[in-house]
Simulated assay, not measured.
Amino acid sequence: MNLTFKGFLKQYCQELAGEETTSLKRLAERAASDAPRVAEPLLLFAAKQDKTDYLKRLSAGTWLEAEFDSASAEIPKDGGSLEDALERGDLPPRYEQVWHAYIARRHAVDADRRVIGLMREKINDAMARSGATCYRVSKELGLNQGNVYAYLHGGDNSKVSRATARRIYRHVVEGEAA
C-alpha cells in the first residue's frame, strides 16, 4: 500500500468527522459544530488541494475563522512543500500532530510486514519438523494456496495479513504437537 499524505488526510478527515465525504463545505460544518478535531487535518487537506482560501470563506463567522487565518499564513505557497514545512516544524504543533499520525500509519504497514516475515521463518521451521505442506495448510485453513505458497516459499510478506500468518503458525504448531 502506498499511502500518500493527501490520501491520508482525506481518510483522516472522514474518520474524525464521521462523514463519508470529501466536501470541504460539509467537513467544515462538522468541524465548526460537533467535530472540532477535524479542523487541523481539514486545513491541511484544503492546502493539498490549493483550496485554503475557499475553506477560510467557509469558516467565516465560526470559531474556525481565526484559527484558519493564522495557520494558513504559515502554509507554504508558490510551490513550497507542505510536507517539508511539517517535517521542519514550521507549522503550529497541532498540525505537526497530524503529520506524525500520517507517518505512524504509513510505517505501520512496513512494521506489519517485518513481523509477518519473522513469523514466516518460524512457520517454515515448524512445517519442516512436522512434515506439513503448503497444500495441506491452505486446504485445512481454507486459504488460497498460491498466496500461502508465495508467502512461505516465495518470501512475499504482502500475500497474507498478520492475522492470517498467526493462524497458519498456530495451525502448524498445533499439528506438530499432535
Rank of each mutant, 00 (worst) to 15 (best):
T21D: 00
R26Y: 02
L58D: 05
K48F: 05
D34T: 13
A32L: 04
A28C: 14
L42P: 03
L58T: 08
R30C: 04
D50E: 15
T22G: 00
K25Y: 13
R30T: 02
L55S: 07
R26C: 00
T21E: 03
A28L: 04
A39S: 13
L43A: 10
A32I: 07
T22Y: 00
T52A: 11
L24G: 08
D34C: 04
D34H: 15
L24A: 02
A47H: 12
T52E: 15
D50G: 13
Q49E: 15
K25I: 03
A35N: 08
A32Q: 07
L42D: 08
K51E: 15
Y54S: 07
P41F: 12
K56W: 02
K51F: 13
L58F: 10
V38I: 12
R57E: 15
S23L: 00
R30F: 08
A35S: 14
S23G: 01
T22H: 00
K51V: 05
L44R: 12
P41T: 13
R30G: 00
K56G: 06
K51G: 06
P36Q: 11
F45L: 13
T52C: 13
V38N: 07
E29I: 09
E40W: 06
L43Y: 08
T52M: 15
A46E: 06
A28G: 08
K56S: 08
F45H: 09
S33A: 14
S23A: 07
V38E: 05
V38L: 05
D53G: 15
E29D: 11
A28Q: 03
T21P: 01
V38G: 08
R37Y: 09
R30M: 11
F45D: 07
E29S: 06
L42A: 02
K56M: 10
L27H: 05
L24E: 03
A35C: 13
A35R: 14
L42F: 07
F45P: 02
E40H: 15
L24N: 01
V38P: 06
T52S: 12
R26A: 11
R57H: 13
A28K: 04
L43N: 09
L42R: 03
K51R: 15
L58G: 05
L42G: 03
K56H: 10
T21R: 01
F45E: 02
L55V: 10
L44E: 10
E29G: 04
A32M: 04
T52R: 11
K51C: 05
K51S: 14
V38D: 13
A39E: 12
R57G: 07
L55M: 11
P41V: 09
A39D: 06
P36M: 10
T21V: 02
A35T: 10
D50P: 04
A47M: 07
A28P: 01
L55W: 10
Y54T: 13
A28Y: 06
